[in-house]
C-alpha cells in the first residue's frame, strides 16, 4: 500500500513539475510575442501632420468611377511598419492631393519600385508581374505578401515573426490565394498546393516549429522551390521546378546528391490516384483498410469483454 502511495506521490510531483515548466515556457513565449524584440513604442514620422485628417476612419473620397474610396491610414499599422520613418511625402509626392485616386495595383508596385528597384524588376518578370502588366488585378504584388493587412502603410520587415513573408508564414500567405479553390480554378491550378505542402514533411516540420527562431527554420517552404520575387509558372522552362531536371537541381540545394530519381518521387502537389502514382494510391487504400479492420476487431473484442463483465455485475433480483 505504501509503495502505491509513494509511486502516486512521485507521479504527482513529476506531473506538477511538468505542468509548471510547460506553463512558464508558454508564458515566456507569449510575452516574447507581445513585446517583440523592441519594447520601446515607436511612432511613425508624420512631419506634415497628414494623420490629422487621414487618421480619421470616415475620411473618404469618390473615384472618377463613382466608387467610394477610403483615405483612412491606420496609425497603429503605420507605427509598426518598416517604413515608419519614411515620411508620407516620400511616396505620396510633395503634392499628394494632386495624385489621381485610387492607385492601381500596378502603380502601387511601381511606387515600391522607385526604391526597391531590383525586386520590382524581378517581380515584373514573374508570373505575377507579367499578369499585372496585362492589367490583371487578381495576382499578388508587393503589399499582398509584405503587409498583414494588404496595405502599403503597414509593410512588415521579412525577419519579423508577424510578417507575412516571414519564413514560417509564407505558406499561409501564398495560401491566401493558392488555397482559394474558385480563384485557382480560373487559372487551371487544380492542385491543392497548400494542403499537399502541409501533408509533406516540409510543411509538417514548419508547422511543428512554432517557437523556432529564424536560424532553426531551415525547412523548405513555397519560395524555396518556386522562387520569391521572380516566381515563375511551373511549366515555364526557367522555373526552378519545371521538369524533373530543374526540380532535381532544386532538391539538391538541401538534399546533397539528390538526382532525377529522387526528384521524380515527388507527387507534384497532387493526390495519389490510379493514374498518378498508382502504387501510392493502392498503398493508401490497403493500409487504410488494414488499420480500420484490425483496430475494429480489437476494439470489438474489448467491447464484448467489457460488456460481459458489466452484464455479470448487474444487480441480481434475488
Amino acid at each position: 500500500m505504501r509503495a502505491w502511495i509513494v509511486a502516486l506521490g512521485i507521479t504527482a510531483v513529476l506531473l506538477a513539475a511538468f505542468v509548471l515548466v510547460a506553463v512558464t515556457r508558454q508564458k515566456a513565449h507569449a510575452l516574447d510575442q507581445v513585446n517583440g524584440p523592441t519594447t520601446q513604442p515607436a511612432y511613425a514620422l508624420d512631419q506634415n501632420d497628414c494623420l490629422h485628417c487621414h487618421g480619421a476612419l470616415e475620411l473618404t473620397t469618390r473615384a472618377s468611377s463613382g466608387a467610394e474610396v477610403s483615405l483612412y491610414v491606420n496609425k497603429e499599422g503605420l507605427d509598426a511598419s518598416a517604413h515608419r520613418y519614411v515620411d508620407c511625402v516620400s511616396c505620396h509626392t510633395t503634392k499628394p492631393h494632386d495624385v489621381p485616386t485610387p492607385l492601381s495595383k500596378l502603380s502601387l508596385a511601381a511606387r515600391c519600385g522607385t526604391c526597391h528597384q531590383y525586386e520590382y524588376k524581378l517581380h515584373l518578370q514573374s508570373v505575377h508581374g507579367q499578369q499585372l502588366l496585362q492589367g490583371n488585378e487578381d495576382v499578388a504584388t508587393c503589399v499582398d505578401c509584405h503587409s498583414p493587412q494588404v496595405n502599403p502603410h503597414s509593410i512588415v520587415r521579412v525577419l519579423e515573426s508577424n510578417a507575412p513573408a516571414y519564413k514560417q508564414n509564407i505558406s499561409q500567405t501564398c495560401g491566401r490565394c493558392h488555397n482559394n479553390e474558385p480563384l485557382m480554378a480560373r487559372y487551371g491550378i487544380l492542385e491543392k498546393v497548400y494542403e499537399s505542402y502541409m501533408r509533406s514533411f516540409h510543411g509538417k516540420a514548419m508547422k511543428l516549429s512554432p517557437t523556432a527562431n529564424i536560424t532553426q527554420l531551415n525547412k523548405a517552404t513555397c519560395t524555396n522551390c518556386h522562387g520569391t520575387h521572380d516566381i515563375k509558372d511551373p511549366t515555364d522552362p526557367t522555373s526552378p521546378v519545371a521538369g524533373v531536371e530543374n526540380l532535381a537541381r532544386t532538391c539538391e540545394q538541401c538534399h546533397p546528391g539528390a538526382g532525377v530519381q529522387f526528384a521524380s518521387s515527388f507527387l507534384g502537389h497532387k493526390e495519389a490516384t490510379p493514374e498518378n502514382f498508382p502504387m501510392v494510391h493502392y498503398a493508401e487504400r490497403f493500409f487504410a483498410l488494414l488499420t480500420a479492420s484490425v483496430v475494429a476487431l480489437g476494439v470489438s473484442l474489448v467491447l464484448v469483454e467489457t460488456g460481459k463483465w458489466a452484464f455479470n455485475r448487474r444487480p441480481k433480483e434475488e
Binding site: 514533411f201 546528391g257 530519381q261 529522387f262 518521387s265 501510392v280 493508401e284 493500409f287 488499420t291
Partner: peptide, 23 residues
C-alpha cells in the same frame, strides 16, 4: 531518401511515407 532513390523505383518514398504513418 536520396540514397534509396538510387536503387528503388520512384514510388518507394511516397509509399514508405504512407506505410510508416498508417502502420
Amino acid at each position: 531518401p536520396v540514397l534509396v532513390s538510387e536503387f528503388l523505383p520512384n514510388w518507394a518514398i511516397p509509399v514508405a511515407l504512407v506505410a510508416h504513418s498508417d502502420e
